[in-house]
Nucleic acid binder design. Structure first.
Lengths: 163, 163
DNA sequence: TATTGTTATACTCTATAACTATA
DNA sequence: TATAGTTATAGAGTATAACAATA
């Protein structure tokens, strides 16, 4: 209304010059754009519909924490228990992980990675690295370390406030 | 197998002491956890099923770029054109935005926010700020600026490599 | 009584493909 | 011929609630 001379009634879509407006301060918006791109690109790279999203994360966590329970896994990946059941079904169907009964608490599954799973994990990890290679190339070591540090801080806060 | 003394055959799920393993280097994993939490918390705060996800982003972008086309919007939010159609249907049903025919190219919609939309945007922005208040509180000004800077760098890279 | 995992189910979100109207 | 937007549709992904076994 008080705009002096801006004829930009209709922004040119080809310039890519778009104002983020109110979104400039919103972390969630920036995070989501990156996440969308990364997850889509990752799915394209593996290009197997029997490897569902979350399978890489789950396999990595099982590998690093042998005997992990499904509940603990669900908390770590941020999905519901029921969703984790489906993920583990996939994982067992692939022969990459297995459920054993916990000795201390027979309600629990003790999750373990298999030999095949270890091989698959290597491949998935390589895919993930390749998927993020451009990012690593664009950031200095210091910047990467700083980014991870800040992201961890943010993540910690997310679960610190029970609000 | 060669583990000397660790009886940690089954990690205690209550300690929260879980090893990220291979995931430690993966940006995508860290981003996703945060995004999951943030989007879920945001949805809980607005608590209106007629306000679909993406509506806040879309409204903010339309507000900041009057006359924006749907294609440009779809590129910016990272969704398909068809998905953006549904978002705009919601937006118009809410009376928060409207489609006008572009004068220069009659195939295009020129998107504009309404008076009600401006009010709603204020509320949504406040919700987003509240949703991220804990994060802002935990980070210094410098850290926030640095985080945004790094995230922008990452985002730029995502679309720089056509790979 | 509370918790682990399971099943069945329904719902939300998103993309694909075919169509139209403009260019 | 190519692009902007639309429609119809199918599919992926996730959560909810009720249940069984165990604690």
């Amino acid at each position: 209304m008080a705009k002096a001379d801006g004829p930009a009634q209709e922004p040119d879509p080809d310039t890519g010059e778009i104002d983020l407006g109110v979104l400039k301060d919103v972390i969630g918006f920036r995070i989501r754009r990156i996440q969308n791109h990364l997850s889509r690109a990752f799915a394209e790279r593996i290009d197997r519909k029997d490897v569902r999203p979350g399978v890489f994360s789950a396999l990595a966590l099982i590998s690093a924490n042998p005997g992990l329970s499904q509940t603990a896994l669900s908390r770590e990946v941020g999905f519901d228990k029921a969703t984790v059941v489906a993920m583990l079904d996939s994982l067992e169907r692939l022969g990459w992980a297995e459920r054993r009964r916990s000795k201390h608490d027979r309600r629990r599954s003790a999750l373990h990675i298999t030999a095949d799973g270890k091989k698959a994990l290597k491949g998935l990890r390589a895919t993930a690295v390749a998927n993020e290679a451009a990012i690593h190339a664009a950031l200095t070591e210091d910047e990467q370390a700083r980014l991870f540090e800040l992201l961890d801080k943010v993540y910690a806060v997310c679960f610190a406030d029970p609000e």
